[in-house]
């Protein structure tokens, strides 16, 4: 992975994170916002080589865990987004994924990612009922799926253009 690609990928994560905490709360439903960082990780896992995507997932998770105003136990989003990157990279085929496949991947990734985060919270002693958790998870999935048509195609094009093996192909 060249230096330019690392920079572009990290820049995408930073932009996603800042928009997620500073812009989207104004449009949020009960504070639930689209998880743009997760969308970036899924887009990367569907285009760039799997090892880089895994590392990007971990880095995006750590950023979500540490950037203000985060106050949960650090490492929980890192765990969730690493798993998301791993699963999305497994789903991917080398043909160009269809729109339906991308949306389905995002929905599954969002459900699994948010669920892992919620479950680690339960393990660490958060006092939430399963019904409340499920409500948040479902709204989060809907948000992520709604934003997919606007966010995923440009991101995948961006990451795809930076992929040297794809460029020569």
């Amino acid at each position: 992975m060249s230096r330019a690609r690392v920079l572009v990928a990290l820049a995408a994560v930073v932009v996603a994170l800042v928009l997620q905490v500073s812009l989207f709360p104004h449009l949020a439903w009960q504070g639930i916002v689209p998880n743009l960082c997760l969308l970036v990780v899924v887009a990367a896992a569907l285009t760039i080589p799997a090892p880089s995507a895994l590392l990007l997932g971990f880095a995006a998770g750590v950023a979500l865990d540490l950037a203000p105003p985060a106050d949960h136990v650090a490492g929980r989003w890192a765990l969730a987004l690493t798993v998301v990157a791993f699963l999305a990279a497994r789903v991917r085929q080398d043909v160009r994924p269809t729109a339906v496949a991308v949306v389905a991947t995002v929905a599954a990734a969002s459900f699994i990612g948010t669920s892992i985060f919620a479950l680690t919270g339960l393990l660490l002693g958060d006092a939430w009922s399963v019904a409340e958790l499920l409500q948040v998870i479902v709204v989060a999935v809907v948000w992520d799926v709604l934003l997919t048509p606007f966010v995923l195609p440009p991101l995948m094009k961006l990451f795809g253009r930076l992929d040297p093996q794809r460029m020569t192909a």
Binding site: P49, A50, P51, A53, L54, L55, G57, F58, G61, V62, D65, V73, A74, G75, R76, A78, L79, T82, V83, A85, F86, A89, R90, R92, Q93, D94, T120, L124, Q165
Partner: peptide, 28 residues
């Protein structure tokens, strides 16, 4: 070659999972 590119390396995956678990433990 494509296969090698697509396969998510298990060792890296497990290393990152352990790293996340370490972060959680440290912070908790």
């Amino acid at each position: 070659r494509l296969d090698a590119r697509n396969k998510a390396p298990r060792s890296l995956f497990i290393a990152l999972l352990l790293a996340s678990a370490t972060l959680i433990t440290l912070d908790y």
